[in-house]
Structures are given as structure tokens and as C-alpha cells.
Amino acid sequence: MPDPYPTTPTDEPNPGLDDLLPALGRGDESALDEIYDLMSDAMYGLALWRSGSAQEAADAVQETFIRLAQAARKGKLDRIRNARAYLLTMTRRATVDQIRRRPKHESLEALSSADLLLPQAGDDPSISVDAALACRRLADLPGVQREAVYLRCFEGLTFQEIGKVCSVPTFTAAGRFRLGIQKLRRLLKVNP
């Protein structure tokens, strides 16, 4: 059976990314390109799942990189121990700022037009999930549960790390994940 978690858990050391933040703090401009190549997909995915809007997700990623450059000039990147979780935390905060600027009547329309999942070729079709159906079901979940599911299932974060990224206690993060998973499994009619 293929591994449903393709990414490396972040509690394992990631020397490439962890070295890039101090390099950026020293003014190395090329570090920004490498950070983008390593993290942009994860940052965009988190922003998309949290906001449900492709446009807001793109704005959040751009805002995150600007804030990262501003943090570099203030010398705040030398003390970062978990670069991946730090960048995801910045992304989440930028996304929440985007959501707060959004007019309330636009939220449902933005959510229904977003593609939260894409079909992936190569897996066993008998056990795969219909991406379009899953997208519709995901749109029914609260944003905080969607982001917990995304961080756990696609980014491989531990509940402790999810709690730090989302600024909530570990048990709250685990609870959001379980609630989201239970609803999804029920809506998709997938057996545990």
C-alpha cells in the first residue's frame, strides 16, 4: 500500500531549510529563491485550505515572503529552530489576516470555487478518493478543521507542531483534526 503521507515529518531535522533562514538573515538574497522552491507548495496549500480562496492563498504566500524579508532585516531568523513550522506559522497568520479583510458575504462564493484537492495518477483507483467529491465535502468543514487535517495529512506535522502553528494547545489541535477526519470519513463514506 502506498504511503498516504508523502512528506517528511517536520520533527526530523531538515538541514537544507534550517540553514537557509540564517543565511537569509545574513542578507543572502538567493536564500529566498531556495526557500520558495522548498516551501511554496506547502505554504500555498495551507493558505488555500484555510481560506478556501485561490486568490487569497496567493496573496497570503506573497505577504508571508515579504514578512520573512522584514524579519530577516530585524535579525529575527537566527533563533528559529524549526524553520518549516515557523514558515507555516507565518503563512497561517497572513492567511487569517486575509480572511479578516474579506467581506462576510463573499466567503461562501470564494470557498465553492476553490480546488482544494487534485486527482493524483498512479494510485490504485479502487481505494482512491474522488477529488471533486472530496473538495465539495471539504468546503463544508470549518477552516480550523481543514487546516489541521492539511497539516497532519499532507505536511506530516505532529499535533504539538500543529498546535504551535495554529497558536492553540496540542489537545485542541488534535481535537480539530479528529473532528475534521470524522466528518470527512462520514461524508465520503470511507471505512476507517
Binding site: P4, Y5, Y44, V61, Q62, P125, C153, L184, P192
Partner: peptide, 25 residues
């Protein structure tokens, strides 16, 4: 909490669009 309990097989979240790279950097 084991990974097998969530159906992620056959789907993946979309990556950042290519047009986002240049203006962001």
C-alpha cells in the same frame, strides 16, 4: 491518529501556481 485512517490516496493538494513565483520573490 495513524495515517491509514484518513483517505488521501488518489488526491493531492494543489501546489503554488507558477505565475506566483516571480512577483512574490
Amino acid at each position: 491518529d495513524s495515517p491509514e485512517r484518513f483517505p488521501t490516496t488518489g488526491v493531492r493538494p494543489p501546489g503554488a501556481p507558477e505565475r506566483l513565483r516571480a512577483p512574490t520573490l
